[in-house]
Amino acid sequence: MNNMTEPLLRLNAVRYRYPGASSDALAGVSLSVGPGDFHAVIGPNGSGKTTLVRVALGALAPLAGSADIDGRPASRWPRQALARLVGVVPQREDNLFPQRVRETVLLGRYAHLSLWGRERPEDHAAVMRALTACDAQHLVERWVWTLSGGEYQRVRVARALAQGPRLLVLDEPAVSLDLQHEMGLFELIRGLVDTQGLGVLMITHDLNLAARFADSLLLLEGGRPIASGPPADVLTQQTVETVFSWPVRMETVDGRPQMIPLRQPKESRA
């Protein structure tokens, strides 16, 4: 199972349609994430990005094609075993009860605990290691509700890291973060990929950040894969303008494509 050539996550020609829907939410999507890969999925709203994550994590079973994690169909993994292999930072979560940062990151260790066993020293050590990796160790005694948006996202990434995963999945982690925290978060994720050999699958609507940090991109539109591969191959002016229905100009920064949306001339506005 731990074969190095086996990708951590492999989607092969996945098709999915929600019950009662008139069209496919995903149609023929393929994707592969190995150790040390940073893979970003981009696309307009409603293009199937979140559905892709649900299928990839086994929450939805594909109608056709396959979604495998470490060589085994994702929907057949017991949740606890899967949580030791894959850490997830979902788009939303609530805190029903007040919690401190230490407690909430410790939730990441639950997949490693036996039914009646209490937390061991190694679990607390893993919590501190994860917080340190996210540059959030100074927050450990803070109440979660006193954190800023950027601090909270770091803590949530730390909780996923505390699971001791080989694959990290993030759904729109930088939404509503300011420039400093947005860039900080992407630098953090990139660093984890480079130093710890983590595989990363990230959903984001931010084309420029995805192109700047990820090794490969998958562009979805209406559930269909439009382009995939290195950022320079995927983010071309023609592709972006077609998919997002807006004129853009492309530039290159650090060898990565960056797009700048243009103002539309008055007469062509709707």
Partner: peptide
């Protein structure tokens, strides 16, 4: 009592609890 840990996870919501290893 055996559900203690999954109940802790459930306070975050069902989807996060599932990803943290609870059979929700």
């Amino acid at each position: 009592l055996a559900a203690s840990r999954p109940l802790d996870l459930l306070a975050l919501g069902e989807e996060p609890a599932r990803y943290l290893g609870a059979d929700v």
